[in-house]
Structures are given as C-alpha cells and as structure tokens.
C-alpha cells in the first residue's frame, strides 16, 4: 500500500520560509485533516504532495518511492474552485478522465468504448446525487453540486491518494452535511488515502482519522514588541520570514474510525457506489 512519508521537508519561496521540518508518515487508508491559520502553508503542502511544487529541502516518498515530480492519475484533487471544466457538460466532465486514459491521440472516445465510459460516468453521477443533471454545464450548477461533480470526476480515475483543498469551504452547513456523508462513503468504498485541508475544526474531527495542525512559531513582530523584545522591527520581521510553519499538533481522532475493508481490490468503484445508492450491481 502507499504510505506517504515526509522526511524533513522544507519549502521556501526566496527568503520566505513557508514550511519547515515537516516529518510525517501518513498510513495508507487514513483520512488526514489538515488545519491551521490562513497563510500557514496548507495549500503549499498539498501542492508539494501533488507534485506541482518541489520541496526546497527534504524528500517526499510514496510507497517507498520518491514522489513523481508532476501531477498524475495516482493523485486526484478537488480544489475549492475551478475544479471542473466549464466547457464540458456534467457527463463529459466525469467521462474525460477515462477518455484521457483510453484515447491517447484524440482524447475522445467513440462507439462502443464511448458508450461504456458514458454508462460508467452515469453510474457515478447517480451515486453522488447528480442524476438528471448530466447535460447541464457546470456554470448552471450550485456550488455544492459543482463540488460533487468534482469529486465524481476525481474518483472516476481511481486515484490512490485524494487531495482536497478546502473543498467545502463555500458551502452552507446543510449541503456540507450531505457532502460529508458522500465523502465518507467514497473513502470507505475505495482504496483511498485522503488528505483534506479545512478551516472547519468540527469538519476535521468528524471526517478525519487524524488531525494535523500547522502553525508558525509565535514570534510575530507585534508579539515581540509586546514582550519588549529589544529587536528592531526590521530584524523581527526577518525572524518571521526566516521561520516557517511546522506541525504543532498531530493526533488520531477518537473514537477510532477505520475504513471499511474492501471486499476485493478490483471491485468496480462505480458499481459499489451504485449499490450503496440502492441500485443492484449486475452479476
């Protein structure tokens, strides 16, 4: 399985240290909730995990191997916004992952292959509660529906790691509760490790098996001044810039949540989702 290991990872932009001394092992099948004040580097952390950014120091291992240095189909992602393609219908947004996989040259499937991909996508859309919206464009969906779509799109490619960057930040509490159920089910029914950034502590505890907090050391200029530090403002700023956020809290959530064991590794995701939704899997 794919344990994720951060080995003394630092991330700096120029002189600005964003993250420092990140030592972390994420067990396979865990659901990690990442919290911390705005600007402390949570998104930066995810982007390193995606392969979009390289650590300045240290290394990241996935399943014992160095992380691939560009995003790939092993790691799915849902952002807070812009996660779906505005020019594709709901159905096409889910299918496109399969089309990228199977149609190297045109990125588009035809005939029998297309019908298969379409059926698969329809199953998945039904499972995330978007049945009946297949032909709409994302702009005419509500925020909650767009995020459901983004989830369906991401899991259709069956990633082993799913990264969520404040995916539900813009949703109202009722819709959020619905989508929490969905994400729990997705986590239970797929061989997935999830890392989710959130600003909502209750969300972190409700969903996560493990909660990790990032924070900068408390040496902001105003605090230093309050303590009558003799440092001038310039050097106080320099200290802040020179010290990045690191892990300040890390605990397993109790009661312990365990992902339901998968019946068999190769069971089709969409069928299981469909069956959870009440439909009978064929065979």
């Amino acid at each position: 399985m794919t344990a994720i290991v951060f080995d003394n990872v630092w991330k700096e932009y120029g002189d600005h240290v964003v993250l420092e001394r990140i030592d972390l092992t994420i067990a396979p099948r865990s659901f990690v909730a990442l919290v911390g004040p705005s600007g402390c580097g949570k998104t930066t952390f995810l982007r390193m995990l995606l392969g979009e950014e390289k650590p300045t120091r240290g290394k990241i291992l996935v399943g014992g191997n160095p992380l691939k240095t560009e995003p790939d189909a092993d790691r799915g992602v849902v952002f807070q916004r812009y996660s779906v393609f505005p020019h594709l219908t709901v159905l096409a947004n889910v299918m496109i992952g399969r089309e990228f996989e199977r149609a190297c040259l045109l990125g588009k499937l035809f005939g029998e292959a297309r019908r298969a991909a379409e059926a698969e996508a329809r199953h998945l859309l039904e499972a995330v509660g978007l049945k009946g919206h297949e032909d709409k464009y994302p702009a005419s969906l509500s925020g909650g529906m767009q995020q459901r779509l983004a989830l369906a799109q991401a899991i259709n490619r069956k990633p082993r790691i799913l990264l969520l960057d404040e995916p539900f930040g813009a949703l109202d509490p009722g819709i959020r509760a619905d989508i929490h159920v969905l994400i729990r089910r997705i986590w239970n029914e797929n061989s997935l490790t999830i890392v989710m950034v959130t600003h909502d502590l209750s969300e972190a505890f409700r969903l996560g098996t493990r909660v990790i907090a990032f924070e900068r050391p408390r040496n902001r200029p105003e605090e230093l001044e309050r303590y009558g530090a003799t440092l001038g403002e310039v050097s106080a700023k320099a200290i802040v810039a020179a010290s990045g956020a690191s892990i300040t809290q890390d605990f397993d959530v109790w009661p312990r949540k365990v992902a339901e064991p998968l019946p068999s590794a190769d069971t089709q995701l969409d069928l299981k989702l469909a069956s959870a939704n009440g439909a009978k899997p064929p065979g």
């Binding site: 995606l50 560009e70 790939d72 189909a73 952002f79 990228f100 996989e101 588009k108």
Partner: peptide
C-alpha cells in the same frame, strides 16, 4: 485557472490531450 491544468494532469492527461480537450 491553474487549477484546471493541474486537474487535467491528475486525470492522466498528456500535454497534447490538455491542449486538445481543455
């Protein structure tokens, strides 16, 4: 949005496919 290009890559798209379909 940069997110779209990242998203396409996480769906396994090549540069050519991203150019063509996204």
């Amino acid at each position: 949005p940069r997110e779209q290009l990242i998203k396409a890559q996480t769906l396994g798209a090549s540069t050519w496919q991203i150019g063509l379909r996204v």
